[in-house]
Nucleic acid binder design. Sequence first.
DNA 1: GTGGTCTAGACCACG
DNA 2: GTGGTCTAGACCACC
Lengths: 123, 123, 123, 123
Amino acid sequence: MHITIDETDSRPIYQQIVDEIKRLIARGELLEQSQLPPVRQLATDLGINFNTVATAYRELQAEGLIAVRHGAGAIVASSKANKKSRLELRAPLRTALTQLVLAGHARSEVMRIVGEELRALSP
Amino acid sequence: MHITIDETDSRPIYQQIVDEIKRLIARGELLEQSQLPPVRQLATDLGINFNTVATAYRELQAEGLIAVRHGAGAIVASSKANKKSRLELRAPLRTALTQLVLAGHARSEVMRIVGEELRALSP
Amino acid sequence: MHITIDETDSRPIYQQIVDEIKRLIARGELLEQSQLPPVRQLATDLGINFNTVATAYRELQAEGLIAVRHGAGAIVASSKANKKSRLELRAPLRTALTQLVLAGHARSEVMRIVGEELRALSP
Amino acid sequence: MHITIDETDSRPIYQQIVDEIKRLIARGELLEQSQLPPVRQLATDLGINFNTVATAYRELQAEGLIAVRHGAGAIVASSKANKKSRLELRAPLRTALTQLVLAGHARSEVMRIVGEELRALSP
DNA sequence: GTGGTCTAGACCACG
DNA sequence: GTGGTCTAGACCACC
């Protein structure tokens, strides 16, 4: 399992980890029941604080995507996220699309970019 | 100009205002050179502190979208002046699309939702 | 007497007027005892508020550079500014030079730019 | 890291902090990647409110000179990352030089003062 | 009447 | 322990 942290990314580190793992699950690279790396190991690999990884795992557990077993590591519990409200799904999409439009991209171009990202998500 | 604040939204209030105004600019409802409401008035309308609105306006000014003139209110400076890096444009989109996929939406369904949001963005 | 207001300049409008008139006096284009345009006329010419020009004239009068006679317009009182403290003279210079250095200009290049501006100031 | 606030200075406090830190970066006293003091500590040292320091840090971040990491303090991001327009660089210099000339300094004397300040800027 | 600065203090988010 | 957000209110600067 490969995860990258980008120092220049404005998202907090724990959020980057959450997003990357979700992406791996969505892509099918992390299957249900498969093992996640131990918190301490991932923290060492990424050169970040132990608590930061723990926060990320806690968030993923709260969303029902992984199951953390005390002393036995974490596994992927489900490849389907908990029900999110319409707002939680739409607001981030709306914001992302608005930025693309304000950047000067025509509607057709935005659709092309979305298609590109979608294909990269589930190849 | 109508803006809504959602208490249940996880984004900070000033960010919601920023996003809403960007949306209004992208939609063409706020034209270049048009006046934005005074910070204190918008704050009263939204039932929040005026400093919160001022923070939103400062952010929009830093991005070059509005011009705040001391003593003379704020106007829309440019509807297409956002210099965002590829990362700043793609990362939020990627996260939003991942959420939709994890929510169980098929690729075609995601494209439909995106199209719907895009049409709502530039009617 | 020609003065230009730049909308994109971050300085307040009244300050731009003050700076421009000081520059004209320093250059010798406005000699002692010469007439300044009436407040209302300058405001009309520049397309700005009457009070803004009045504020600029008040500032220049406070510094002893112009004399405002009620109902008789303003004249250049002196081509030498009131004594400013060392801080008032040095701090703006220091800030301006720091910006040039941070912009990547070598010391010699900064001196060249300063020489250029100085020559433009008293030709 | 030593910063001084001058009550008699007309610049707002947060701006004085911004200018002082820029100066320290330009002088090479604050090297890239080095830590800035925590906002609350610097505020206590200067005897001001922490929000005022936070405003200064936010401004420096917006200009790309420092990177503020939520929960992990701020570091110097780049000692030469200022993208200022020609106007933003020249106007303050022009104003500062005009003041020196109006104070009665001959052109040669102004050049001497500028040289003095420049040497103090990068020792 | 417009926005800007600063303070004081509470509570939250991140590492 | 770090920075972020928000509020409340005072006073100032600009048009």
